[in-house]
Computed example of a mutant assay.
Amino acid sequence: MMRIGLFLLTNLAVVLVASIVLSLLGVNSYFAASGSGLDLGALLVFCAVFGMAGSMVSLFISKWMAKRGTGTRIITQPRNNQEQWLLVTVERLSKKAGIAMPEVGIFPAQESNAFATGWNKNDALVAVSQGLLDRMDQEQVEAVLAHEIGHVANGDMVTLSLIQGVVNTFVMFFARIIGSTVDRVVFKNENGHGLGFFITTIIAELVLGILASIIVMKFSRWREFRADHAGATLASRQGMIRALQGLQLEQKRALESSMPDSLYAFGINGNLRSKLGDLFASHPRLEDRIRALQQGA
């Protein structure tokens, strides 16, 4: 219920901001003045505003949503030696990476997991699951923290949001061109745009959106290799390899026990993936990540 509420509020904010910007730009419609065809200039502005707005709004509220969506508790006053060690370790790794100290939190998940988020590298959040702290030793946890700090230092969240915004823009743009073409050529609608335009546009957006996600996911997989390298540099290569091997063992156990699709270590899907599935995966296979570190990549 909370996620649905956040989704609706986010979309309401996007529509409000986009409407104001469009009004200021004088873009009231992307249909041609004649009533047929499209004003491509106005359409491109329309799609850019809506496409980028959704991505940017999500980025700016990412930390707030992550805290509430995962139930993350921010460590302000350490309750025990483990929490004290977490703060000291994150502070040391952050200084080494050249970024401001992020907020540090723990979220109540039994799976070994961690994430970093925030709209800029000096206002970030790094959180680990209780399951990760329970299963991994300090060398492994330090490597995981370094991996997440690597994401922050590399500006991955901002870059990914920009890429997603550009992808959104062109998906919307070409979907409406396809919709307009089908409406005129197939449905012979020369006076404005009919139901065929809107139905075709929705279908085209779905298809193009799925295909375009391959681009976003490719970048996401590439950034994981970079973050692994950061983990090896900021902490230790052996610790990063051991952390990934620990996740690999946990993944294997989950598959053997027929766990549902809920194991997301660093966002990694626990199920075996096909070659086609790899194209849409946000993270590389664990064996590929381990091999890259072992080869010094």
Rank of each mutant, 00 (worst) to 15 (best):
M1P: 10
L6G: 03
N11H: 13
L16H: 01
L22G: 00
L25I: 06
L25W: 11
N28R: 06
A33H: 12
D39H: 09
L40N: 04
C47D: 06
C47K: 06
G51I: 02
G54A: 12
S55V: 10
L59H: 05
W64P: 03
T70W: 11
P78N: 02
L86G: 02
L87C: 03
E91T: 14
K95F: 06
A97H: 05
I99F: 08
G105C: 04
F107H: 09
P108E: 10
A109Q: 12
S112R: 00
A114G: 07
F115D: 08
T117W: 07
G118Y: 05
G118F: 03
D123P: 00
L125C: 01
V126K: 05
Q130V: 09
L132Q: 01
R135L: 08
M136W: 13
E139R: 07
A146M: 06
M157W: 13
I163P: 07
V166C: 03
T169M: 02
F173H: 10
F174P: 05
I177A: 01
G179A: 06
T181K: 10
R184M: 09
V185N: 09
N189P: 08
E190D: 15
E190V: 12
E190A: 14
N191D: 15
G192W: 11
H193M: 13
L195S: 15
L206E: 14
I215F: 10
M217R: 15
S220L: 08
R223E: 07
G231V: 08
I241A: 00
R253C: 05
M259V: 11
D261W: 11
R273V: 14
S274V: 10
S274M: 12
K275T: 14
K275R: 13
L279Q: 03
A281K: 06
S282T: 15
A292P: 03
A292K: 01
A297Q: 14
A297Y: 13
